[in-house]
Design a protein around this nucleic acid. Structure first.
Lengths: 214, 214
DNA sequence: ATATTGTATTTTGTATACAAAATACAATAT
DNA sequence: ATATTGTATTTTGTATACAAAATACAATAT
């Protein structure tokens, strides 16, 4: 069995899993004693894990009242897309300035399996999509940027492991982004990433409006 | 005396103060028991405060070894400017789209005291500068954006309460940014903010290069 | 003199005890 | 029937005890 030097880390991962697969529901209060017992740990390392999740916007703490799973309303989901637009746009710019061959290879590798396929496995594509967007950030080597980019967690929570738009739209977009990076065109790379994220955002906004008027 | 529902909050503030005024030095190990005793609290709420600081990039935790005050090298400082460029640029864009009168008033209020002055109080100006940049973020009303924007802390730690560039350069730039927001020109507002931050970044890069070659 | 080993001390990580606050809910008044 | 009060229970926040790991440092070997 693997031993940990810091129990809060596996607890943190377990909690994220519980959030993703619905063992913990939106808005639910986290009764520390209960969860701690479930996981077979004490409240001390659990609290550490919860504080980490709080800083990733997944958990909200109300002093003396408890820790709650965040309920993300549409405004906040849209706000998160705005943040992603800024950060991933900048990331693409940085990568285009560098034109690092290994980076470009890794980005391409995400989507080459889906080229010229008549049928695309949606789960696999969703995973590739997530991988691509997080790679965009990681490959910059900008540690603070990576540090503030926790949105994949939230994306997972909000949209499940589904997609906002379908591959027939986005697959081409992804390759155009990579081309701009490979071509060393930072302005274009940033612009394309922004448009890419913005389109999904607009779609979500429209879905919201329709929901409201129904 | 004010009572708190959560002791970790005043501890958190005190620690930030200690970092700013040098009571705690770069790279120093935080001996929990010692600091806890100094502050007259136990390690439990101190740990909560330290974890919050860790998430703001001010403290680094090495499991089983302890919590250390982060040493920011030049690369990281530059990386932080890159993040600021992306986030504040987006913030200016959002504000320009909204053209909210009260927001514009607040932004102007930061710098009007310095207009047509023959002598500028540098401390006051540095404070106004900090206020302006944090307002830019706050006024968007984008909670996740605000959540990830912790760079003012770091700025304070790194550059002290000094300035990278002098008011004779930046005062005009600030007003041009506000003009673009007021004029409802999101592209221009974003571009100006980016250039504004970028200029400081380039200056820091040059300082670094010179330091190295000496 | 320097490197290595072993022991004592310090410090962290976790569990737990306890007080104070929050909550649930029954008893009473309106 | 609904609102209000008071009490019991639950839950949080903090302090603290203890084990395990890390560190400091003296004793010994080379």
């Amino acid at each position: 069995m693997i031993e940990y030097t810091d129990l809060s880390q596996p607890i943190y991962k377990r909690l994220k899993e519980m959030i993703r697969n619905g063992e913990l529901k939106q808005g639910e209060k986290i009764i520390q004693e209960k969860i701690a017992e479930e996981l077979g740990v004490s409240r001390t390392p659990l609290m550490k894990a919860l504080l980490a999740l709080e800083n990733e916007y997944l958990v909200e703490s109300i002093p003396r009242r408890g820790m709650y799973l965040r309920v993300l309303d549409y405004k906040e989901i849209i706000d998160i897309y705005v943040c992603r637009e800024a950060l991933e746009g900048m990331a693409a710019r940085l990568l285009a300035n560098r034109k690092d061959a290994s980076s470009i290879k890794q980005l391409k590798a995400c989507f080459t399996p889906f080229l010229n396929k008549e049928r695309i496995d949606m789960n696999a594509y969703a995973e590739a999509d997530e991988k691509f967007h997080s790679l965009l950030i990681k490959l910059t080597g900008n540690a603070p940027l990576d540090n503030i980019y926790f949105f994949s967690n939230i994306h997972d929570k909000v949209v499940g492991h589904g997609l906002v738009r379908t591959p027939d739209e986005t697959l081409q977009e992804h390759f155009k982004i990579i081309d701009a990076i490979e071509g060393g065109n930072p302005d274009k790379a940033e612009k394309l990433v922004r448009e890419h994220i913005n389109k999904s955002k607009e779609l979500l906004i429209n879905q919201y409006k329709n929901q409201k008027s129904e």
